[in-house]
Write a protein that binds this DNA or RNA. Sequence first.
DNA 1: GGGCATGGTTACCTTTTGGTGGGTATTGGA
DNA 2: TCCAATACCCACCAAAAGGTAACCATGCCC
Lengths: 122, 122
Amino acid sequence: MPDSDMKTIYNARPRSRSAADMQCAIRILEGRWKMMILAWLFEGPVMRFSDLQRAIPDISQKMLIQQLRALEQEKVIFRTVHAQVPPKVEYGLTDIGKALGPVFTALLDWADLRRAVKASDA
Amino acid sequence: MPDSDMKTIYNARPRSRSAADMQCAIRILEGRWKMMILAWLFEGPVMRFSDLQRAIPDISQKMLIQQLRALEQEKVIFRTVHAQVPPKVEYGLTDIGKALGPVFTALLDWADLRRAVKASDA
DNA sequence: GGGCATGGTTACCTTTTGGTGGGTATTGGA
DNA sequence: TCCAATACCCACCAAAAGGTAACCATGCCC
């Protein structure tokens, strides 16, 4: 491997603080749905339960609730219940949740890059 | 919700290209181990199979192989077999893999923030 | 009185994920 | 001769994740 490649790698390398930190963060976002839900919560100040259902049609009601509860417990999102009939519940990002912005931005950039590379391969 | 909060949210919002792109990226990194493996691959130009085993002691051999294969198929990592006895196999990040650097950096920053917030809560 | 809407809960089942413990091949060294 | 080292593969099992369908409460409207 030539030196130039080494440099590329070491420039790309994120400062490794600790593997434990990484795992901790990963576990919170783990699963098929959490990132998807968070991505949609970035779309507006709040989203109603039914908004999320419509936004992510493949998720089952059970999963949606389960994942929302998990994210709420980690204080990544908040839940506000309005005493109305029919009920109205709003979900939104907490400050910690909003701090995930750069992660999602980076991920979307990466997705773009991948698509570009794939296209040029073909 | 006051206007100032709205602004905070919209500033934090990653540009939403498409939910499909997001899901596509998420699926590649999904699971308990892939991000962990990638994080370690950022540690050096290449890692041997046994290096990764030592680095992530909780992973079983089967899972490690399985996840490495999956990442290889997505062209996020490469695999080089050296015709030696005993065998020597090296894994490293491809260009696409290296492009994940910002995602990991952002994630580690987030983990730090979370820890800081938790500490100040207590 | 019946249907609708919202935001759930629950029981049950299937699929996916992950773990364990075995086995394989090669070859140099004791 | 037998073992160690490396990087696997395979069969089997356990656990976790996820899906389906039914049910609930409330209050409005017809």
